[in-house]
Design a protein around this nucleic acid. Structure first.
Lengths: 233, 233
DNA sequence: GTGACATATAAGTCTGACTTTTTGGTTCCG
DNA sequence: CGGAACCAAAAAGTCAGACTTATATGTCAC
């Protein structure tokens, strides 16, 4: 998905990051830089760079005379795409997927409403195209092709909202949707009702009907929540 | 607000980070590590660590034989608390404040709804206490004391939602609220209607009335949007 | 027990030498 | 004139070793 292990320190991170987010080193654990350097067979400089990155993600804290201590999960920068990827790859996957889906359910309806106001003609066209692609691949076990258009649809919505914070959640939504198709539920063709909703959202955005776009998108996200058994009846 | 410049590389970051987020080095600009090291009068190792951190924030990209190039704003990790702080401190402040307020308006109502379902007795008590503190300081130019309780109120809501992604937005909300009091509008006492809404939200959460908590919180955030002239009438 | 002091420890810093990748120009041939 | 192969320089990347600094902890006197 993203560029892996740029350089030596990157490869160290690819190994150490997932280990920490997976709880392999529980909060409070103390690591020592030169010991890690030996373990990973890299120089101290390289290991120091890796530790600095982990520190900037608030995964660890480095203090003199103590070492590198692992922080509690509650302090991690959970919006860091790298951290999200590490957690989705490990044992935290279910919880991460749930919390991200709840996040989606809060953001996307508002984003769709804003998109209805601010989307460019080009974005409206893209949206319609995506919706068409979804319909075309909604039957006959063409899940991969469906996913491509589904992902593109939601990315366009987020981008068209005109809000930079929303736009940057594109990668997150991509991960969640891909995860759902590849690992979780979704063995059969997608719910026809959901497909229809996407088409209607595209319509609403095109017509500039913010309220309708928001309401319809909320229905989509409620569906996503129900798939994961979140939300009491 | 947060720990400043831990170590030498931290002080470099405190200088370089804001410079980049302020657009002082426009996207595509090329920096050279050893030149920077000379400018900042630090060793190459220290500068390399700083660059690694900037790289992990997607502010820059480091490539062999070319140097350290500044990335376009659209690729920055805008949810990194450090990046947010840097942007709030610079010329980007107004735009950053707006996009964060829109983000709040999406998140907080949902968080309040969840809080109504999942808040512990202790959290309910805290919430009530905060609301009382807000009322007590809502008149007579006691803005600072009011702010403290306002911030605490919203942090408790986010934490009580039980969603880790929401909880981690506590710092962001704190920055936005503090920014509003210290630099933007808000010369007079807070809007009495807003104060009442907070009290009612506390009530709704205590009673477990998710829908009411959500709706009331939405009214609060709409008020915040209006203060910044976001949202057409 | 409390305070001052000594000590060991691990991170932090600096320097210099070396390696590797990549860009951009140069040359040579078709 | 154009393209392919090649070469050289530039900048990041890596490593090793020596030194500095902060600080947690243990010790000792009172």
């Amino acid at each position: 998905m993203t560029t892996p292990g740029r350089g030596l320190h990157g490869r160290v991170l690819d190994s150490l990051g997932p280990a920490i987010t997976a709880g392999e080193y529980p909060p409070g654990s103390v690591l020592r830089t030169d010991e890690l350097a030996k373990d990973f067979e890299v120089s101290r400089s390289v290991m120091r760079e890796a530790v600095r990155v982990l520190e900037s993600m608030h995964l660890v804290e480095s203090r003199r005379r103590v070492g590198v201590t692992v922080r509690p999960k509650s302090e991690w920068n959970v919006y860091d795409p790298q951290v999200i990827r590490w957690r989705l790859a490990g044992a935290d996957r279910p919880q991460q997927l749930r919390s991200l889906t709840v996040l989606r359910s809060a953001i996307e309806p508002i984003a769709a409403g804003l998109a209805a106001k601010f989307a460019t003609a080009e974005q409206c066209a893209e949206l319609t195209e995506c919706a068409i692609g979804m319909v075309a691949n909604s039957r006959g076990h063409k899940l991969e092709a469906y996913l491509v258009h589904d992902v593109a649809f939601h990315r366009v919505i987020l981008a068209a909202s005109g809000n930079e914070m929303f736009a940057r959640l594109g990668d997150v939504v991509t991960e969640v949707l891909a995860g759902r198709t590849h690992h979780e539920v979704m063995f059969e063709d997608p719910d026809p009702a959901a497909v229809t909703l996407h088409v209607q959202v595209a319509e609403a955005v095109r017509e500039g009907d913010a309220l309708r776009a928001e309401t319809l998108t909320r229905e989509i996200t409620v569906g996503a929540l129900q798939e994961l058994d979140i939300l009491a009846p």
